[in-house]
Design a protein around this nucleic acid. Structure first.
Lengths: 127, 127
DNA sequence: ATCGCTAGGGGTAACAAGCACATAGCTGGC
DNA sequence: GCCAGCTATGTGCTTGTTACCCCTAGCGAT
């Protein structure tokens, strides 16, 4: 059944550009990114996927990492965006801007039809 | 390599809501939908996926179909949206509106950073 | 009958997402 | 020492989606 109330319907590989953007704003380790990802629709879940994605980005040379020995807990792997990663981010941003335009088209036509409906049948069950 | 110039990065199940919207505007057969889908970022490709999606929608009761005997070519299957399909469309539209908000967040922060950059290093190579 | 067009459909391999589970280091209590 | 609990990083497994390429069938014209 899988009955979600609204379900986000985020873009396809959205996690990757989000990570690149966040790392561009500020280098970080995975656990921290998990928190900073929330405003982008990732509800704090799935650390596994996050780390996997980070390792993949590193494998592609888009981010680099180094261990940081922590004095109060286990060592962390600090991720940093590379120059190639920034270029990738630019490209993805272009694609996402286009996706937004497409979404606008969709939502525009959707709402247009809703408005039309309302005009045809005003106050269907009222009074 | 598979280097797409921009790559659309559309939402995950975007085809489905698009089909529902198009069928809500006007009933149609598959081949026609293939054309009408273009403004939504589907470059006329993959008829297979389209038909599969349509059959699935029908299996879920969101669209219904009937054969229309054509006098000048092979018969076509005409698809029509059902009431359940319209409700599904409403739900998806909510989700997509949320996705657009998320995209706005992303692009806002992205451009913010780009602008900041430009302020730091104004006119790098300009006569 | 066969070619070419329109229309509808299937198979599959690659990839992404989601979920649970495993590992490892450190701190604090006993 | 030892165990519990926290932080931090990671792996495995199972599904879902996507993308690509191929196949069938009806019809009109040659």
């Amino acid at each position: 059944m899988t009955m979600d109330p609204v379900l986000p319907a985020l873009p396809k590989n959205f996690l990757r550009p989000c990570l690149l953007l966040l790392l561009r704003e500020q280098q970080a380790h995975g656990y921290e990114l998990l928190e900073r990802l929330r405003p982008f629709g990732f509800e704090g879940s799935d650390p596994g996927g996050l780390y996997r994605s980070l390792r993949k980005l590193e494998g592609e040379g888009l981010v680099s990492s180094a261990w940081e020995p922590s004095s109060f807990g286990p060592a962390r792997r600090i991720y940093e965006i590379t120059r190639a990663g920034m270029e990738e981010l630019h490209d993805r941003a272009k694609g996402l801007a286009e996706a937004r335009r497409t979404l606008d088209t969709f939502l525009g036509r959707y709402e247009e039809f809703v408005a039309l409906r309302r005009a045809e049948a005003p106050a269907p069950a009222r009074g």
